[in-house]
């Protein structure tokens, strides 16, 4: 920095470490709860240091039938459902947004602006504000309790379409001219030139959308009634309710850990892409 003040530098690190400790505290408590047995987790005060039951709890959570006294799907199945939903939403959004951005940027056709505005409207209508009528549409189409119902209603995306439009607009016109001189048709141009050029943007967007898809809560809560279709994020709420009768906090908190692990790993391991995706989708 601009000046040398050893005490200030020391103070800076202390403040940052305290900040990190506050941010990490809930996760630490969760982790500790997941490493003790059921009995210990009912004795006040609860432990602050990890115990030795981590693997036992992990096995019981992943392959057991959930909390005693409740009939739920095994956690590995819920994680699989979450994975299918997250991948379906992320890849679906990317695919249909790439195609529509391509059409809007590289073709001149009637109603082009009309379509553009129609896509723009989706930006303004989050699921939370139109839940009852959207639920009715999905029910009429017979999509309740299916992967299609979990993903398709969520894959229209104005943000992704805008982002790809921006990316395509920065690609020089000469690319298209030379491709056309060489006799490439539209789809050839799309697959051989546009897709490779927007590779990093696709990856960055994928990171953001995977997290978005994995963390969906209200929508799966409404349209899945079959316990074999529940996602892991939803199951936490059901477990909190069941905890009133059978407080197996070790299992509940292990499930919470498993539910947050995939998106957290994605953020930490692909931090560069994550930051790029976050800042670009807001433009």
């Amino acid at each position: 920095m601009v000046e040398n003040r050893p005490w200030l530098a020391f103070f800076t690190h202390v403040v940052l470490l305290i900040g990190i400790a506050i941010i990490a505290l809930p996760i630490w408590i969760t982790f500790v709860a997941a490493t003790h047995d059921e009995i210990r987790m009912t004795q006040v005060p609860l432990p602050l240091l990890p115990g030795d039951q981590f693997w036992v709890n992990l096995k019981a959570t992943l392959f057991g039938r959930g909390l005693s006294g409740t009939e739920t799907a095994p956690v590995w199945l819920m994680m699989l459902n979450s994975l299918v939903m997250a991948l379906g939403i992320a890849l679906g959004k990317i695919a249909i947004s790439l195609l529509s951005a391509f059409a809007i940027v590289y073709f001149r056709f009637p109603f082009r602006m009309g379509f553009f505005w129609m896509i723009f409207i989706t930006l303004m209508l989050p699921v939370e504000v139109r839940i009852v009528p959207t639920f009715e549409v999905v029910a009429q189409l017979g999509l309740l309790n299916s992967y299609a119902g979990l993903t398709i209603p969520l894959i229209a995306s104005a943000t992704a379409t805008f982002m790809f439009r921006q990316v395509f607009l920065t690609i020089p016109d000469e690319m298209l001219e030379s491709a056309r001189i060489d006799g490439a048709g539209p789809m050839r141009f799309f697959f051989d030139i546009l897709l490779p050029l927007s590779r990093t943007n696709i990856a960055a967007l994928f990171v953001i959308l995977f997290i978005y898809g994995w963390n969906q809560y209200l929508w799966p809560l409404l349209i899945t009634t079959d316990s074999d279709m529940t996602t892991i994020v939803m199951s936490i709420k059901q477990m909190l309710e069941a905890a009133e009768q059978s407080p197996q906090w070790n299992i509940i908190m292990m499930t919470a850990l498993l539910a947050m692990l995939p998106p957290v790993l994605v953020v930490v391991l692909m931090q560069k892409l994550f930051v790029k995706g976050l800042t670009e989708t807001e433009k």
Partner: peptide, 21 residues
């Protein structure tokens, strides 16, 4: 072709956004 390209996005928008709204 451009109509086919925007079709998936537009159909989903119509069925799951505009119609429910």
């Amino acid at each position: 072709l451009p109509y086919l390209l925007v079709a998936p996005q537009i159909i989903i928008t119509l069925v799951f956004f505009i119609w429910p709204a």
